[in-house]
Each structure stands twice: as C-alpha cells, then as structure tokens.
Nucleic acid binder design. Sequence first.
DNA 1: TTGAAAGCGCTACCAC
DNA 2: GTGGTAGCGCTTTCAA
Lengths: 336, 336
Amino acid sequence: MTEQRRRATVVDVALEAGVSRGTVSRYVNGGHYVSSEARQAIEAAIRKVGYTPNTAARSLVRQRTQAVGFIVHEPHSVFLEDPNIGVIMLGANSALSTRDYQMVCLIVDSERDTDRVSRYLSGGFVDGAIVVSARDRDPILSVIERLGLPAAFVGHPPGITAPFIGIDNRGASAAITQRLMQTGRRKIGMIAAALDRDSGADRLAGFREALGIAYDPELVVRVPLYSFLDGAAGMRTLLERAPDVDGVVAASDAVAAGALQTLLESGRSVPRDVGLVGFDDSSWATRTTPALSTVHQPAEGIGRAAAEAVLEQIRTGDIGAGGLVLDTSIVWRGSA
Amino acid sequence: MTEQRRRATVVDVALEAGVSRGTVSRYVNGGHYVSSEARQAIEAAIRKVGYTPNTAARSLVRQRTQAVGFIVHEPHSVFLEDPNIGVIMLGANSALSTRDYQMVCLIVDSERDTDRVSRYLSGGFVDGAIVVSARDRDPILSVIERLGLPAAFVGHPPGITAPFIGIDNRGASAAITQRLMQTGRRKIGMIAAALDRDSGADRLAGFREALGIAYDPELVVRVPLYSFLDGAAGMRTLLERAPDVDGVVAASDAVAAGALQTLLESGRSVPRDVGLVGFDDSSWATRTTPALSTVHQPAEGIGRAAAEAVLEQIRTGDIGAGGLVLDTSIVWRGSA
DNA sequence: TTGAAAGCGCTACCAC
DNA sequence: GTGGTAGCGCTTTCAA
C-alpha cells in the first residue's frame, strides 16, 4: 500500500526553476519566447518534481478538450456480436488520432447509463460526439441537439438534423434480393431484424420492393436484434411457416449465420436446398461454411467519415447538416 | 448551419434568478440550505437560460472526475474477434455504473495512440484505469505507475504491482488437456498464441505440464494472435508436421474455430478423427458445428472485479496491490 | 524574453 | 439561508 502523492503543478515547476508560471506554460506549449537558460532550468525542474500537465485544467481555459465521444447504444448481445461496430469504431479512432483527438468510447447499456452519459456530454468533457445506432426518440439525441454539440450519426435516426453517415440500405437490400432471385429461387423469405431502426426497416423495404407482387408477408419473420440467436430462432419460425422455402434474405450476417445453423440442423443443404444471403460483409461472412454471399459496406470508411464530419464542425464552429451515403457492393460467395 | 451558442454558466443563472452563484451551486448539488423561493427562481432561471453544469470545471475543484478509463491495447483483429473483451468491458461498465462512475473506453491501436492515451490518463480526465491485455514493458504501464493512478489489470503483466484480476491459465490449460487425453487421443498438438502475454505463455505451460514426458515440441505451433485466421493457419502447419494428429488444444476459442475450419476443409471429421478443445467459452464456442469443448472463464466477473479494485483504491486513497484469481471450469461439448 | 494578473466555470469556506 | 471570496491548474493578454 502506497499513498497517492499530490501531483506537481506549474507552480511547483516555476518555483523550482526560478521562473514564472507563464514562462513554464510557454515552454510546455511549444517553447516559443523562452530563453535557453530558462528552458534548461524548466526541463530540470520538470524532471525533479515529476510534473505532468493537467490537460483537464487546460481544457477549461481553452474551451476545448481535444476529445470526441463515441457513443454506442446497443443492447449487450448486439454490441458483442456485431463486428461492424468494432470496425466503425477503429475507423473513427484512426481518423481522430491523425488529428490528435482522443476518442473516448461511452457505452449506453441501461437507463442509468443514458443519464450519466448525457451529463458527461453536456459537462464539457468532449468537443463533439459520434453516435452509432441511436434509436427513435433517443434521449441522448435531444441532449446533443439542445447543447448544439458537434455530432455525427451513423445511420439515420428520423428527425435528426445533424450530419449522418450511412449506406443505402433499401437499395442494397433490393439489389441482393434480386441477385438471389436470379439464381432461380421461387420461394424467398426474409428474417428481418431491428425494425425500430432505420437500417432494419429499410432492409425490409428493399426486400419487399425487389419481390414486387411476389411479396408474401407470411414469409417475413421479424426478430428484435441483429444477432446470431435471433437469426437461428427466426429461421426456425420461417421453416415452420414454409418448409419449402428455397431462398432466405437475412437482415445481417450474424442473423444469417444463425439461420445457417438452423438450416443445417434441419438437414437442409446450403446452397443446394436453400440459398442464403446476409448483409454487412462482416467477419461472420467468411467464418461460416459455406461462406456468406452478402452486401459489403465500408464500415471503416463510415467511422472515418463520421469522425471527419465532427471535426469539420468543431473547426468551423458551425453545426452542419446533411448526410453522406457511401457505396455498397454485393459480394457473392458460397451460400447462394 | 446554426452557429454554436455560448453555454450558460452559473453566473447567468444567478443573475437571472437574482441570487448569488453560491446559492445556485448549492441548489445544483442537492439543494440543501436553499429557501423555496430561491429554489423556484433558480429552477425558472435554469430553464430560461438553458443551463447545464460544466462538470469538467467541477472536477477541477473537486479533484475527481467520477470517470474511470478502460484501456484496450490490442491489435485490430483481436479486439474485433475476441468477444471476451466485450464481455469484460460490459462487466466493468455495469459495476462502475452502479456507483455512478463513467467508464470511458480508450483504444490503443498505434504508437500515436499510446502517447495520446498516456497524456489523457495523466491529464486528470480520469480517477483510475482498468487495463486489459497489456503487453510486457507497455509504456502505458509506466505512466500509470509513475502517476500513482489507481489501476487494475486484467491478466498479469510481469513486474506490475497494481492489483490484477485473472484466472489460473496454466492450471485450466493442464486440466482441459488432461480431459482431452482421457478421451483416448494419442497424438495431441497445440496451437499456442499470444506468447508475449502471460495468458498465452501460461496456457502453453499448462499443456506441456499435462503431457509430461509425452510432450513433443514438434506438435506445438506458435501463432501471434488469439484470432480465427491465426488458428486456421496454425492448424495447416500442424497438419503438415503431423497429419496423424488426433487431438488439438487451441489457445482460445477463436483459434479453435479457425482450426476447425482447416480440419473440415482437410476432410477430417471432428470429433471422430480429431478431438479439438478451445479456451474462453466465448460466443465462438457455441457458434461452431460441432460446438467447442472449452474452458469457461467468468469474463463478466473479471470486468466487475477489476472495476471494484479500482473503486476501492479511489475510495481509500491507497494504491493497493495483490491479485485476484477467479475460478474456471471445463465445459464439454461436441468437439472432443 | 519575461512576470504579473486576469479569468475559464465551478465549489467551498466564511461570516453575516 | 445566503452572498462574498478564494482558489482548483492552467493559458493568455499586457506591460515591462
């Protein structure tokens, strides 16, 4: 057991070096207008007293923290299973890092978290925020809006004016559904997930659009989350309703992986008996056998773009609006 | 485009309400010693000027931030693939949340990140830190030590005096290896990973210990990371060296999943031809077919315990030492 | 090139 | 109960 020691301050350094606090501060911030004698004295003093600047105090006077929050609002299971979130996060971190901003990731996982994170955001600990997977009427959104905090959203929660970065979920979903139809499947179902989010709703809309008059609501199973378990369960339901289904569009790769497990357990062969496609092109897609045909989305680019959007607002001081839609492509593998 | 508005301060509220800053402050911090007239005036003023307290400024005077850093120092791929890190993180978040502490997750993913995160930690933005998967001689460790920052480590990097939370990797590895031997396997290999970390080295040591004189270094393939891809590659190497291998101990579930893919591709059946065991009991374990026999470790409990250890040090003001080793168990499923 | 002094937004101590 | 005042640790004019 050691007692915590008091941290040294500029004053300690100034006293030790025999100069003023101002001079120490100037030295710390680039060393301009500091004579070489002063510099040396200060360097020695810093070493001697073990000084590290309190950047939090600096933030107070400069009115900026050089930190950006990355807020993940997902239930447990999805956060753990969706590799896309991780990729987006690393993309954002990398972009922020380049400009010497600190990304601080905040997890919202309970009612209590919502309040605390809101306080944290409004409390001046960050200069901006990136929000992934906000739900409709998310309390955090109103906090950000009220504060006028520079922000960017991944996905597009309705009613948001801040910039958002996304993909054309509807178009991509329609495209891969069509591609699946071209393989000659006659009875195509969908395991739709996360319908309380724009991404989930749009993927279903795209599916419906592609099928046109062939669309049969009976063949759409709705599950709550983009998760493996929901995918497996959804597939069981779909098989009960339509044992002769020969094509399945899953709302995400994790969902598809779960569906695949159910299909194999039921004795069906993929893609021979059933063609299956996913969405995301996450690491799930190549970890299954057969590998998943799916929609590739540039997750890292999304993270980067979101970070840029926030930095831009911080730089200009204007709260920007408008969205950025990045391109997707279809990756055809073995599952369909 | 809207311009950012200046945030209201206590002074604005005080002026508006016709009371002093002190009274406003007292109201904000629990409302003791505030008359009901004052209270009402303040409430109205807060609404009118749109005041949100700057908790960063509060931190400066109180000398505590109510925030704890959660530092993940992993290369890309592992962070994304290791569901254990996510579970540990949620466990820590949950424990911190209960005590109204904000967990801020900081990702170290480059040289540059190391410096920036070090500055962030020493800059007074957090009251303590939880560090997962530090490597030997990690620069962040020395920063924490020099600062006397309350901290806890997940795993046990050598030379660390701060509390650590871990499991008996060596014992657990020996146990599951023995269990695998009992199924009658004669030629057992290991895909060892992350040997630059105590967990990786200890798992290999346990394997060796269990095999005793039967240990054959030729049957140990070393790969850098606890990852699916390294598992797949490691298994290929192992099969080249010993096509007649009939048992495999993988250093983690992700590694085992990769190994499984290689085994199936090579036309072998698991568990008939080869018995395979993993480590972690992460979500990988039940997503493979057959599901993995593995070592269960209480990931969420590890996160919780790490958080408690940090909070305890913050509370007492003493930098504690010593470790906590949590129990593991073997979960036997279909892969061996 | 330097030091003195003001002040970032807040809390806490003090008399009243 | 309340207002005044002194800082938390730092940066940043402004004179010298």
